[in-house]
Amino acid sequence: MPKILDYVEYTKTDDGWTSQKIHDDGDFVMERREQDAIDADVREIETGARPSWTRLGLPRIIVNGDTFRARDED
């Protein structure tokens, strides 16, 4: 069945940042694997910008449980 992306989640843990893609009302989770990439995304988030790979498509982003809004998004 199609795996429809609900949101991308970034969570800070004791071991650093993790990221997951949550699909199908939470039924399906895709782990994101590249730590470097996750860290780079977080750096962008910290500057108030969307992680660059999400700028095409504009999926919902949740950072530590909160919906993220980029600077230029209303």
Binding site: P2, K3, I4, L5, K21, R32, G57, L58
Partner: peptide, 27 residues
């Protein structure tokens, strides 16, 4: 929008995403 590509991708690099007025022009 068949999602065959998503099904092919064993590495979770592809998902399907809702189309919006905003993202279609971007695409």
């Amino acid at each position: 929008g068949c999602a065959e590509c998503v099904d092919q991708c064993d590495d979770f690099a592809l998902s399907m995403l809702q189309k919006t007025d905003k993202n279609i022009p971007q695409y």
